[in-house]
């Protein structure tokens, strides 16, 4: 009996040690993750200009965003999400295929663009895409193509820049994953008469399935958060239509509307911005969940 009690006391005495190791990280995590998330959720139910105390408005922000077609925020949410989803659909395949191709064929020097800061990247590309003096039009002899403010060129340019800039991290992952693909399997496939494409589809890609899944999910999440590139490129692009006094811009993303509402130089509306952010967060969560489930199902079926 005494032996048991002593052992329990010893365990209790030592229980704080792992907690002590975890504590610094937990504190940082709470300060910089949990607290801002909770503040954001709270703010989404308020009218808040940041300078003054928030005023509780219940579900009013969500009602405005989801039902009030006279409000500009209603349209900003729709158009912002629409543009963002369009961007994700157009950009993510390239964010996977381009680095994978580079990893299969070329060298890691293609990681270099990822080391540049966004402002350096955007200023450089802005010069290159300049209609009159830009290298793109002049080198390709395209005349005066308005890459920055005309559809579909603005979309092509944005996707090109994003893929060029953002492929490095995926490239590194694919390179290390490809290094682990079994040479025996490749050899066996070759002996069985499989050509290079068949080996890629039936041996290489299944062998790097997990890194592929990881990069697809992280790329989708990353592109849902696109903000800096369109903001610096053309501020959201040309107007496509005007509805109820609100102009719909070609490539203005949901994050731009959130940043403008939450931290713009004028008219701060942190409550609406938080509500939009929460809706975006929920959508990203659902999309990631669906992706995860689909990929898991694929694994199970194969297994």
């Amino acid at each position: 009996m005494d032996v048991k009690r002593t052992a329990r006391r010893k365990m209790r005495r030592g229980a704080w040690i792992p907690l002590a190791f975890l504590l610094p990280h937990l504190l940082v995590f709470c300060c910089f993750n949990v607290f801002p998330i909770l503040t954001g959720i709270f703010a989404s139910f308020t009218k808040w200009t940041l300078g003054k105390a928030p005023i509780w408005v219940g579900l009013e922000n969500y009602v405005t965003l989801l039902t009030d077609s006279q409000s500009m925020y209603y349209w900003q949410l729709r158009w912002g999400l629409q543009n963002t989803i369009q961007f994700v659909i157009l950009c993510v395949p390239f964010r996977i295929v381009v680095p994978l191709s580079l990893a299969l064929l070329l060298q890691t020097c293609y990681y270099l663009p990822s080391l540049l800061s966004l402002s350096v990247v955007m200023v450089s590309w802005l010069y290159m895409f300049d209609a009159r003096s830009g290298i793109v039009n002049n080198l390709l002899g395209l005349g005066k193509v308005l890459w920055i403010n005309t559809e579909p060129y603005n979309w092509i340019a944005l996707i090109l820049i994003t893929v060029w800039w953002g492929s490095g991290s995926n490239l590194i992952i694919y390179q290390s994953a490809l290094a682990g693909v079994s040479m025996e399997l490749q050899e066996a496939a070759r002996v069985d008469g499989a050509n290079a494409f068949q080996r890629l589809i039936h041996v290489t890609l299944p062998s790097i399935r997990f890194p592929l899944q990881y990069t697809i999910i992280t790329s989708v999440i990353a592109e849902f958060g696109i903000w800096g590139q369109p903001d610096m490129f053309n501020g959201g692009g040309p107007t496509l239509e005007v509805v109820n006094g609100i102009n719909r811009q070609s490539n203005k993303m949901i994050m731009q509307y959130i940043a403008e509402s939450g931290f713009g130089s004028s008219g701060v509306n942190a409550g609406i911005a938080s509500s939009m952010a929460l809706i975006l967060g929920l959508i990203v969560f659902c999309v990631s969940l669906v992706q995860f489930k689909v990929m898991r199902r694929g694994e199970n079926e194969e297994g």
Binding site: T49, T239, V242, N244, G245, I246, N247, S266, G267, N269
Partner: peptide
């Protein structure tokens, strides 16, 4: 935000005037 859209033919002067007032008022209201 509305920029030169009228000049580039992507918005009429009337739409510009309406958008200018509408967006300003809504931001003030917040």
């Amino acid at each position: 935000g509305l920029g030169w859209e009228v000049l580039y033919g992507r918005m009429t002067p009337e739409e510009f005037a309406q958008a200018w007032e509408k967006q300003t008022l809504e931001k003030i209201e917040a």
